[in-house]
Design a protein around this nucleic acid. Structure first.
Length: 148
RNA sequence: GCAGAGAGCUGGAUGGCCGUGGGGGCGUAAGCCCGCGAGGAAAGUCCGGACUCCACAAAGCAACGGUGCCGGGUAACGCCCGGCCGGGGAAACCCGAGGGAAAGCGCCACAGAAAACAGACCGCUCUCGCUUGCGAGAGUAAGGGUGAAACGGUGGGGUAAGAGCCCACCGCGCGGCUGGCAACAGCGGCGGCACGGCAAGCCCCACCGGGAGCAAUGCCAAAUAGGGACCGCGUGUGCGCAAGCACAGGAGCGCUUUGCUCCGAGCAGGUCCGGGUUGGCAGCUUGAGGUGUCUGGUAACAGGCACCCUAGAUGAAUGGUCAUUGAACUGGCUUCGGUCGGGGAACAGAAUCCGGCUUAUAGGCUCUCUGCGCGU
């Protein structure tokens, strides 16, 4: 009846981070963007790096080398907890995040990484779409930066 | 035109570009093309079914849950339609858990003398006594006061005062006739009045009802821990060589009766099955299906004919953006006709599928009816 939601337990701190790798950003406009579907992928991402913005939370994780997924892929997942609102509000937030990810991630995401976008109450639906894209680019720069 | 009542519809629109979930086609592939893609409530999960799996010897009884005026509709319903009765309204219409209180139990707060079986607080009348406005006795229940409710009501006669004591009408009860399939209604007769209310407290009566749900269920693949069944040998007493029969015991089928089934202490063995986890496929959308039309019916609805195929996801598709337009609401100007701006669409998102109910819902539209007013 309802899709699975973000678990509301707060397990989202220190995880496996990797040093930043320099990536060439050209000719990636039509790269496929697979969607995360397994609960375990979401749980792994929630234990990795995260960066909040005004209208959403972004989690990012570099996949380990022994994982079977094609290392050239950028994968993305979307989630909204029930705090975001009723089903209409949650679906709307996911659709807007999907649109933002489609515009930004093929060019700015790094191959071999998984990204999870988490919606926020009211803000995800209300914020201008251009601003949301800017938010995501800013957050990706922060996430990709080497840890100090 | 104004006020009101009922029934129904709608739920921003059009186009371009980019994207997305199924389906179809082309292609070795990358990919390209075509077509389809949320609601009236998709919601609450409250009723009723379909469909699956499990359970099920019969009858009676009991328990538990539900329904409750009558007739019809339906696959079925607690739903719908029509009618009856009671209540509200000037009317259109609206509301009602609307069987049984002479089967039984229980309750009826406060107030009041008295709350269910009769009785008498203030009174009223008569008699007696005297201290002359009080006491005693008898009669009475009309009047007063209390209450949601006070042992029929109103009027007249009657009386010491009164009382169905008598009479008329109304109410009530009993039995009859007429109309109606029925609930019930009408009419006239008899009875002087017995039977207060609550069944949404228990209860009685009638009728209905196995359980779980698509995470059902079936299949495939991977992966592994050791649960169960059957076979074989073995099993109380009596009779019997034995097979078996009888008896006793225990267990199960809600209970009873009839009836049936099973069991008995283990094990070196043999054969087979299942369970949880993850992924995939089926179930999965052609159905009590829609639209139009004709026929029957007051209607709910039923039937005939023609045409149509209209989401099938599973971390879950319907989105983003641009242009034109744009309701409510709102600011200014106004010659009250408008005009220039702002603003940017309610409740809400399919999850096996249907029939209902309930709840949420900005605004707009249509039809019918009632009352009043105006015009012709």
């Amino acid at each position: 009846m309802t899709p699975p939601e973000t678990p509301t337990d707060g397990t989202a701190t220190n995880g496996t981070s990797s040093p930043a790798v320099s990536v060439c950003l050209d000719d990636k406009a039509d790269v496929a963007l697979p969607v995360l579907k397994k609960r375990s992928d979401f749980l792994a991402a929630s234990r990795a790096r995260k960066q909040g913005t005004k209208a959403m939370m972004i989690q990012a994780r570099k996949r380990r080398d022994d994982e079977t997924v094609d290392p050239s892929l950028v994968r993305v997942g979307f989630t909204c907890s029930k705090k975001v609102g009723n089903a209409v509000a949650r679906n709307r937030a996911k659709r807007r995040m999907r649109e933002v990810a489609r515009a930004i991630l093929p060019a700015y995401g790094k191959p071999g990484w998984d990204y999870v976008l988490i919606g926020r109450k009211d803000a995800t639906a209300a914020r201008d779409i251009q601003t949301l894209q800017g938010d995501l680019k800013w957050a990706l720069r922060k996430l990709h930066a080497p840890r100090s």
